[in-house]
Amino acid sequence: MSVFESTEKMYEVLGELFETLLAHETVGEKFKQQNVTIRFIMSEPKGEIWLLPEGKVFCGVPEGRKEDISMTLSGDTAHKFWLKQITMPVALAKGLIKAKGPLPKVLKLLPLLNPAYEAYPEIAKKHGLQI
């Protein structure tokens, strides 16, 4: 069974994580400067989470949007990634995460993830997830 019992639960947890990340004083501004739309295509449970260039998070499928970068992964892989139990290079090499889009833009965003790594364990605990 997936760590997220439903799509709604995944949206609650990961939505809060991304909102926390984009509200971070440094990360939010740097993300907006990149002017990029990121689409997370999730499985187990199925869903989509979008990070929009204006610094907003959208859970579901926003009308009339196209992504610059898409990341395809399972809910369990996302959970392990944010707990730092799996790294991006390993996940990509094993096919646990599939990335499409301009690699330089993806690489520029990686240093912005540290506040998310710090915030995720507490967010996961708050929502009753096993960490």
Rank of each mutant, 00 (worst) to 15 (best):
M1L: 08
F4I: 13
E5S: 15
E5I: 13
E5G: 14
T7N: 11
E8K: 15
K9V: 15
K9N: 11
Y11D: 03
V13S: 00
E19Q: 15
T20P: 05
L21Q: 05
L21G: 08
L21H: 09
L22K: 01
H24A: 08
E25H: 03
T26N: 08
T26D: 11
V27Q: 00
G28T: 00
E29N: 01
K30Q: 09
K32N: 00
K32V: 00
Q34N: 13
N35M: 08
V36K: 06
V36P: 05
V36D: 04
T37D: 07
T37K: 12
I38P: 01
R39A: 10
F40T: 09
F40S: 07
M42Y: 15
E44L: 05
E44T: 11
P45F: 03
K46C: 06
G47F: 03
I49T: 07
W50K: 00
W50D: 01
L51P: 03
L51I: 13
L52C: 04
L52V: 02
P53I: 04
P53C: 05
E54Y: 03
E54M: 03
G55N: 00
V57S: 06
C59T: 15
C59M: 13
G60I: 11
V61A: 12
V61L: 14
P62N: 00
P62E: 00
E63V: 10
G64E: 01
R65L: 09
K66D: 11
E67R: 06
E67V: 06
D68Q: 08
D68Y: 06
D68M: 04
I69K: 09
I69Y: 05
M71S: 14
L73T: 15
L73K: 11
S74I: 06
S74L: 07
G75C: 00
D76N: 15
D76V: 10
A78E: 11
H79M: 08
W82Q: 09
Q85V: 09
P89H: 04
P89S: 07
P89I: 05
V90A: 13
A91N: 10
L92M: 15
L92Q: 09
L92E: 05
A93I: 08
A93C: 06
A93T: 10
K94H: 01
K94A: 02
K94D: 04
L96F: 12
I97K: 05
I97D: 02
I97L: 14
K98E: 01
A99N: 04
A99G: 09
K100N: 12
P102Q: 13
L103H: 08
L103S: 07
P104K: 03
P104G: 09
P104L: 05
K105L: 15
K105H: 12
L107R: 08
L107E: 10
L107S: 10
K108F: 09
L109A: 04
L109M: 15
P111I: 01
L112W: 02
L113S: 10
L113E: 12
L113T: 11
A116E: 00
A116T: 00
Y117V: 05
E118T: 14
A119C: 02
Y120H: 04
P121W: 10
I123E: 12
K125W: 08
K125A: 15
K126I: 08
H127Y: 15
G128S: 12
G128R: 10
L129Y: 03
L129G: 01
L129K: 03
Q130M: 07
Q130L: 11
